[in-house]
Amino acid sequence: MNTLPADDGLLGPADVRALAGRLGVRPTKQLGQNFVHDAGTVRRIAAKAGVQPGDVVLEVGPGLGSLTLALLAAGARVVVVEIDERLAAELPATVAARRPDLAADPDGRLAAHLQVVRSDALDVHDLPALAGGAGAAAGAPTKLVANLPYNVAVPVILTLLARMPQLEQVLVMVQTEVAERLAAVPGSKVYGVPSVKAAWYAEASMAGAVGRQVFWPVPNVDSALVRLVRRDPPSTTASREDVFAVVDAAFGQRRKTLRAALAGWAGSPARAEEVLRAAGVDPTLRGERLDVTAFARIAEARAAGA
């Protein structure tokens, strides 16, 4: 009987380069591709995500499979979304070769453990239906664990939280600046639109730094882990879309007071002030001082005709 390799079958630097070379894959800045080649890092990510045997985990942008293998080693059933056709096609073969202990069906597939969805994550609407295999057999993913391309990290996180209410936890590796913005609190210098919109869905916190040398090629920016734990949105009669419209307007001119920044959204500076006062918000404040609940009150006040 096949047994699990002593190294969990994880990829090292030589493995990553060999795989990329065989596939003719050259990491591109356009796709934000920086492949992780350090086994310790992917083990750490799986551990910090609290992945347990039987968990169904969503991974976006698995690349050559470094993190995928770590999630499988932790006992997860993994549904991956990969936009690159070559990488999506190769991943099952990589997993089968590195993890011969995983039971395959008669056709050699690993559907009970791994399901690959060839798609842009921003285009995914019904993941369980697309996934089949691991996703359909075990239920929809409850955790998102990924090394996200820097240029699409925020849209991917917010889109998946919106479309997949069953996602309870997120742990992603992103550019440090992105992680700090997602986890920022009102009043901090980096607090902005991503901070507020993420707070609508979840409580975000920094979960550790990641060195540049664990990537190939080595990026020009620092990376970090950010954790988001699902919670209920603010109690409000306003829709998410209406609340986010206020947020966008407030930070569209973040140096201006809310009275001025929301003038276009409300119809005039005077009308903006009326709405703000009805919501219990000082019109002379800037958007960076408000939490998501305050933005919800503003949207609600306007909808109520204040």
Rank of each mutant, 00 (worst) to 15 (best):
D105L: 06
T159G: 00
L91M: 02
E168K: 02
T293Q: 14
D84I: 02
R99T: 06
A138G: 15
K143R: 13
R43W: 02
I83Y: 14
V210C: 02
P269K: 09
A184L: 07
E168H: 00
T41A: 11
D120Q: 10
K29Q: 12
G252H: 05
D126H: 04
L127W: 00
R271N: 10
R254Q: 09
Q115Y: 05
A260P: 08
L87P: 08
D222G: 15
V79I: 06
D38G: 04
A162R: 10
L258I: 12
A46S: 06
A162P: 09
K29P: 09
M164T: 00
P5Y: 08
A183N: 00
A14W: 14
Q52K: 15
K256I: 03
A88N: 10
H125M: 13
E274D: 13
Q175C: 10
A18S: 14
L276M: 07
L110P: 08
R302Y: 09
A20E: 10
A162M: 06
A14E: 15
R181M: 04
D7I: 10
P283G: 11
I83N: 13
L67A: 09
A162F: 06
V25A: 04
V193W: 08
V95S: 11
L102D: 03
K48E: 15
R181T: 04
E273C: 10
V78F: 01
T176K: 15
A207N: 01
P53N: 09
A96M: 05
A111F: 11
L67C: 10
T142Y: 01
V124I: 08
V42T: 12
R259F: 09
P269S: 08
V25F: 07
K197E: 07
A93L: 15
F251A: 01
P217F: 03
R286D: 11
T28D: 13
N220G: 15
W265I: 10
T28K: 14
G61E: 04
A209N: 14
D8I: 12
G287I: 09
A131L: 01
P141N: 03
V42C: 06
L182A: 06
E300T: 00
A202I: 01
D84S: 00
T159C: 02
F215G: 03
P128E: 02
E82W: 05
V56G: 03
G65I: 08
A49W: 09
V174F: 11
Q175V: 11
T284W: 12
A207R: 00
R297T: 09
T94A: 07
E203K: 13
V156H: 01
E274Q: 14
A134I: 01
T3G: 13
L4D: 14
R43Y: 05
A250Y: 02
R43E: 05
G267Q: 11
P27M: 05
S239I: 03
T94P: 05
D232N: 13
V172Y: 11
V57Y: 08
D7W: 11
Q30W: 13
S119K: 11
A14S: 15
V16M: 08
Q30L: 15
Q166M: 01
N2D: 14
G9I: 04
P149W: 04
L258G: 12
R286H: 08
R99C: 02
L182T: 04
